[in-house]
Each structure stands twice: as C-alpha cells, then as structure tokens.
Design a protein around this nucleic acid. Structure first.
Lengths: 246, 246
DNA sequence: CATCTTATATCTTATACAAGACTTGTCGAA
DNA sequence: TTCGACAAGTCTTGTATAAGATATAAGATG
C-alpha cells in the first residue's frame, strides 16, 4: 500500500480494505461515473489508482460480480452490468409455463397517469406527503390469452415524462436504466391468493370466482432505495410461480 | 504444489484445482465421513493433506460456506452445517405474517402410511415402478387457526420406519438429518392459486370457494437427488409468501 | 478477575503462470 | 495490390502459491 491517506492505516478500519474498495467502486456506478455497458479499468490499473494490491481489488470486483453489478469476461475485461429485456426476464420474473420454460408476456393494453401518491404508496416508496407518482395500469397476455393485470407505481421525481411515453415498454427496468439512469438492483415479492371479482374477471377473461395469484412487488435501487411498487393479479391457468430454495 | 500424483499436473485438469478440492470435501460430508456439527481440520492441515496450498483450500471452503454446507467462525474453526428446527424455518420456509416476521406453524394433526408410489410421485422422486413411499398427510396451524394442509411423500427406502414414528416432527429436515443421515441441501417450489373445495374447506376451516395458495415443493440432497415431494394448500388469511428477488 | 498464550479464521500483499480474446505481422496466392 | 490464412504478440481475467499481519475465541496462568 502506498500513497493513501492515513485514515485506513492508523484507524483499525471499520470495514476491511476490500469492502472499502468495493464501496468506492459501487459509488462510481451509482453516480454514473461508470455507465452500464462500459468497460472499466483492469485490476492492476484500479489497484494502482486506489493504492491497494491487485488481490484486494479482485476480491471487491468478485463480490460486485456476484451481486450482478459487473460482468467479467476472461480476455476481454470487466464491464458494468447492463439491463436488457432478456436479462430482466430471467432475473426478476418467476413465472414459468408447464414445461418449466420462463414465459414472456406481451402488453395487451396500458395506460399511465400522474397522480398524488396514496398513503400506502407513500409508505412503500418512502415518499413525502403530497408527492406525485406515475401510476401505470396494464394487462399483459401470454399464449393468446390475458395473463395478468398490474398496477405499477413509481415516483414521478425519478421518472419525469414516463406517463407521456407513447408506448410503455413491456420490460420496464431496462427502460428505467437507459432513459432515466435508474438501475434496479433487487426487490421483494409477497404472494397470496384471491378470487377474481368482476373487475379482475373482465381484465383477465376468466369467470368471477376463479382463483388468482396476487403478487405485490417492491423494487430497489442502490442503498435499498425503493423505486417501484407493483400489485399484480395473475391468471395461473398455464403458469406457475417458481422459486428456488437455497 | 508438492507430493501429488502427476494426473493434475500433466493433464490440463478438467476442473480447476479448487473445484476438485471442493468436490473431495463435499464428498466427505456426503459419505458421512464428516458429520453435521463436527469440527473439520483447519485450512493448513487440509492443504497439507491434499497437497495443495492453503489459498486453494480457502477458495473451496468459501464456496461450500456460501452453499451453507459449512459454517466458519473466526477464532473457533470450520464446522459442518447442522440443521435445527429454527434454521430450517429461516432457510426453506417463506411464509411471513403481516408484520413480516416468519411464522412457525404447529402440527394440528398428522397421519403417515407406507404405500406404493403413484406415477406422478415416482416421476418427481425418480423412483422405479413399484417403489414404496411414505405418505404423510397433516394439517398445521398458526395463531389458533388451521394454516395449511400438506401431503408429503418421501421414498420409503431412505426413511424406513418414518411412518411408524409416534409423533411426526413439525420440522422434518432436521429429523431427516439426525435420524436418517439425509441432508436436504435445497429445493424448489412452484406456486399457484386454487379455490377451496369441500375437503380443503374442512381441513382449513374456511368457506368452500375461498382462495388458497397451492405450493408444490421438491427437495433435494447432494447431487440434486430428490428426497421429498410435497403438495400444500395454504389459507393465506394472515400470511404472505415472501420472496427476495436478487 | 485480569492477562497471557495459543489456535483459528480473516485480511492483505506479492508473484507466477494458464487461458481466452483481440490485434498485429507475415506470408503466400490470386 | 489485395485478400485470406496463419502465427506471433499482447492484454485481460482466472488460477495457484506463499507469506505475513490482524481479529476473534477459548483456555491457561497469574
């Protein structure tokens, strides 16, 4: 270790060195210093610049790769993870068909409005009273039949103009990243079962009283910052929600 | 690398050295050479014994820790992961109450029989025609009300005498490990929604036509060997199935 | 009770070679 | 000259090794 302020050498260091390095590198992605798809400097260059050894940088990069923030390719280099419609489907979408193949629904119809956030939405998205949100309502289909209805709520601050987008993209998170520089890093889903009321029956073309899977989803960006809240009701005639238990 | 047969040095090695080391260490757990809860030799002893460096052993142990096969404690040593009722609840049980706390259901009633496996069960458990299984039917409750009904099917070969166990344990996997030396390493769940029929309504004390969450679970031991198939229907009045999206 | 010792995992650095991917240079044929 | 094939070179990540410093836990000692 060479030209580094003494803070980390004198103080017992609250965090291991590799974790500090990781935090600094994550920050570069978070601030947009490094953009999605970009090639970042190699291990030796980073080690040199940060004043640590190559092995320490390697450990930081390894964890970031495990968290899907980076993609490393032998012989090529290290790149900032870039969302694509395909990758989003695999990462965050847990519905599979009878054979076990992931299903990819297409949008049947959608509409978006800017409104004042309701209390439940404010709580989920950690917004102040009176904050505005974009509320998207859409029905998606699969195999020629309606599959689910979603109500998607995002802060208007983060996504200005989203409501006026002529065609709401089918996969939103790559759009969020490309257009609004908001990277979705993870989230959580809560599931329960409901029976279709008149409204849901109309949306999904099923009989009232049919069983539906209800999925409540909250997605986060860096620092667990909530960026989307979504409530879906899904007709699970030919689909299963699949989870790997680790 | 020192005293090692030339196989790995001359041949380009089909697998990286650390992966070979890992495979050998996993095998020791799988065969019962190392038992759950046992303290295993430290990194230097293993490196010495296997003829590799300490760093290579470390990488293997690190992956095994990530897969929850081992538990490492600084200053203490490395131990083989041991299932307990509590740990099982956190690892494989995804139901939470309204506050987000994991719920812990108690068994209301259960019965077990030995039968010939049905085709669907044979397929899930990869059993030969005519193979016997133990089929457990039970209702579990939570907060004074019935929570779910489960049909659990396991190969009779693996768990002889399970059907005659006077009281089927509430958490099965730690029992599997302690009594039958079968370690459950992972699994998968597939969810959909159903409406309660007469039978389910009776089990769960809900009205017929109520929405229920149906969970089909297959659990695996080492080498993805299926050891349990389970079909549950859950009354989700005060419970949510929660999933972390990574 | 406080302190020392020991054993362990964890962290950091350093070096070397292997393997993959791209670039450049060389050579020969058309 | 132009094109293509092939070899060589170079940059990158991946793997393997070695050695030292630090943090944590448990037991022994005073």
């Amino acid at each position: 270790m060479a030209g580094q302020d003494d803070a980390t050498t004198t103080v017992p260091a609250l965090l291991p060195l590799y974790a500090q390095v990781k935090a600094r590198l994550v920050a570069r992605i978070q601030t947009g210093d490094w953009k999605p798809g970009q090639l970042i400097p190699n291990e030796f260059a980073l080690a040199d610049e940060l004043g640590v050894s190559q092995g320490t940088v390697r450990k930081a990069l390894g964890e970031m790769t495990a968290e899907q923030l980076l993609v490393r390719r032998q012989g090529r280099g290290t790149f900032v993870q870039q969302h694509t419609p395909e990758s989003m489907l695999f990462r965050f979408f847990n519905f599979h068909d009878a054979v076990g193949e992931p299903i990819s629904p297409e949008t049947l119809w959608a509409k978006a409005r800017v409104c004042v956030a309701k209390p439940a939405e404010r709580s989920r998205l950690r917004l102040a009273a009176g904050a505005q949100v974009v509320r998207i309502s859409r029905v998606r289909g699969h195999g020629g039949r309606p599959f689910d209805h979603e109500t998607i709520v995002v802060p208007h601050d983060l996504f200005p103009g989203l409501a006026e987008t002529p065609e709401i993209p089918n996969t939103l998170y790559d759009h969020f990243q490309q257009v609004y520089a908001v990277t979705v890093t993870g989230g959580e889903e809560k599931l329960d079962a409901v029976v279709a009321g008149e409204r849901e029956a109309g949306w999904l073309d099923v009989a009232a009283g049919s069983p539906l899977l209800r999925v409540e989803r909250t997605m986060f960006s860096f620092d667990e910052k909530p960026v989307e809240w979504r409530l879906s009701v899904c007709a699970v005639a030919n689909a299963r929600y699949a989870v790997r238990l680790g």
